[in-house]
Design a protein around this nucleic acid. Structure first.
Lengths: 386, 386
DNA sequence: AGACTTTGTATATTGGTTAAACAAAGTTTT
DNA sequence: AAAACTTTGTTTAACCAATATACAAAGTCT
């Protein structure tokens, strides 16, 4: 967007700085905020007064003195409003009601039996209405809805392509905004998961994060400089279709040797495989009991995850890699082979600084991240780069 | 960096907007600048007066009337100063003296016979001093030196690792700044090439660009949102070591099946290969004469370039891909197999919007890009994102 | 010749940050 | 306990950049 500088912009920038400082570091006194941001005490006082008037910040009373007048403690008012975060999965619709701080207030889900748009939309409508009914009375009420979907999404919230749902060009944002009259944000499932882990999970305050969602396929959420990178038309991160065997198995995408053919739940159907089960939760149970076939297969997946992860490390050079998605529940058996292969194959300079973790938010990561997108859309965020 | 808003910031932002608008679109009248930027006519007048005082903008006289008073035409003063851009190659040192608009004023080079730091540094010193002596008299003189090196560089201008030179942890920026007392910027060779093509070559005004430098190895320059992405510690884009054959040939990096083993000049030494020559320029000559082995080998490289490019498309979803480096001179024979493989293997939605081109600046791209980094460092660039 | 257009400047106003003084409320020293 | 010092937060006056508005300058069109 075309932005020029004037006093209104200055005020917006400083107010945003103060709001997010308090959001992330409260409880805090005005004096601390002034120190942390570098803004003048008077400026902080004025803008905090406005934020209090907007009920986004609350004054909770005097704190401990450190040799002078007691500070007046400020808090981010997470209960100024609430958001709904939804994850649309192939077989299930899961949703949470969160406050502005990402805490879950209510949770509910629904099993999907088909993927026709009208049917799915109707179930979303019911789920959302249900959560809206349960929302506590807050100054702003429901300030937004965030949805994570298993497919490519453009910047206008149109689901361009979701192969597992059979969707193409579905303007989900417009449909939901029309229905509920609140701002709706639509994100790719992996992108939402990345946001969740970045803000509330295993990757707090990481600047360059790679989130790998390994489940029925593989998708990646790429955080660059603390911000989600979506690519030219909204579908960066389709790393599941990165070829790791140039002349390997043909994939439905038209290519060959795609990563997700070797390192996702898609491998459960490989011919000639003896497996005691065909779903991750069941296989996890078998592996926990020492079942050989399950152990061997997780080791296989772990190694191939490592090969793809190495490729991504060489391209993106992230600080941290978080493995999420359904397969993250097999952390116990995937972790060793994955880390071993990465250690074997990465350049020496990459190894030094890199960490690999598994999701902290588990199956809730995507919902929480989707909800957080809605929160940020409500609060706004403005930054200056030079 | 910690930036807060005040009036000085507002002025900086607007002055930067105006300067870069004139730099990229001049000749221009004050009225046109006001229209294009959305800034008030008076604001434009004031800041343009300052820029004229700084000699960064010049008033060249009246232009054509469009039914009213004649406009006073402004120009970006590319001759306010000059920069030096250098490419450090394995066998050669090439350098240009450019004005602030990227036009080449002088050019010179030197054949390297060794890679010891003192020797290389001494040759750079001679080359730079020579160009400085040839620099025209300008208000600001030499405002910076930009260097493109074949290796990983961190944000402080330290060459972390340059395998082809045998360099490790060389603080090249400090060394050159100490020698010449002007700001020095150090960039990876592929990153500099990407900057060159983005600003003066085949990729003008592209927002998300992937520049592939294919020569003795493969490196990538990644432009995201019009800006260079360098990764967490400065070495993103090492895509040559992306594995495209999970269990393929072992690579010196410790991994297996690395892309550059199949799609760079490294293939010239493959065992069992009958080639009439072992350098790209010579092979290009043979291919032009229809020599079978050369044609077959370029076709092989083109196909494998396509496989790796497809992987990068799936990860970065760029608008444009530019192939540069020594191999770009074989465009005539690489283009068809490359585009064919990419078309076969990419997801349908990626094909629609994607273009693949070859470098426009040729062997000068990296130098010009490196010089441009120095120009931008001198002019400054400040932006607001919301 | 007169009406209209376009360009660029001058003037008064607005509204934000800031430094400095100040008031309020505490702790430490004497 | 009084005096001195500290810390917090507010008030005041000054500053300064952008803006709207009016205006001057220099052209075109009828």
């Amino acid at each position: 967007m075309k932005v020029t500088g004037d006093q209104a912009l200055v005020k917006k920038i400083n107010k945003s700085i103060i709001l997010h400082t308090i959001r992330r570091h409260s409880p805090l006194s005005r004096a601390r905020v002034s120190e942390m941001t570098g803004l003048n005490k008077a400026t902080v006082s004025n803008l905090v007064a406005e934020l209090c008037g907007q009920e986004l910040v609350t004054e909770v009373g005097p704190g401990e003195s450190s040799g002078g007048r007691k500070p007046l403690i400020l808090n981010f008012n997470a209960m100024a409003g609430s958001v709904i975060g939804i994850e649309l999965r192939v077989k299930q619709l899961t949703a949470v009601l969160c406050d502005l701080g990402g805490s879950i207030l209510h949770e509910s889900d629904f099993s999907l039996e088909a993927h026709e748009l009208p049917y799915v939309l109707e179930q979303m409508r019911i789920l959302i209405s249900d959560l809206i009914a349960k929302a506590p009375a807050t100054p702003y009420g429901i300030v937004g809805i965030g949805v994570g979907v298993p497919g490519m999404v453009d910047e206008q919230g149109v689901v361009l392509f979701a192969p597992n749902l059979g969707w193409e060009m579905v303007n989900l944002r417009a449909l939901l905004e029309h229905e509920f009259s609140v701002p709706v944000t639509i994100d790719n499932e992996a992108n939402a998961g990345a946001q969740g882990e970045l803000n509330f999970g295993a990757a707090r305050d990481v600047r360059h994060l790679l989130y790998i969602s390994a489940g029925s396929g593989i998708g990646s959420g790429i955080i660059i400089g603390g911000e989600l990178y979506k690519g030219a038309r909204g579908y960066a991160g389709e790393t599941g279709h990165m070829s790791i065997e140039a002349k390997g198995k043909p994939c439905s995408c038209g290519s060959r040797g795609c990563w997700e053919l070797y390192a996702s739940e898609k491998t459960y159907d490989n011919p000639g495989l003896t497996l005691p089960a065909r779903t991750t939760p069941e296989l996890v149970r078998y592996a926990a009991n020492g079942q050989e076939d399950a152990l061997r297969h997780f080791s296989f997946i772990g190694e191939y995850l490592g090969i793809g992860v190495t490729n991504l490390i060489n391209s993106f050079n992230p600080e941290l890699i978080v493995i999420g998605g359904a397969l993250s529940e097999a952390e116990e058996w995937l972790g060793e082979p994955l880390r071993r292969v990465v250690a074997e194959r990465t350049l020496p300079y990459h190894k030094q600084q890199l960490e690999i973790t598994f999701s902290k938010l588990g199956s809730r990561g995507t919902m929480i991240g989707a909800g957080f997108s809605a929160v940020m859309h409500f609060l706004g965020n403005i930054r200056v780069t030079l």
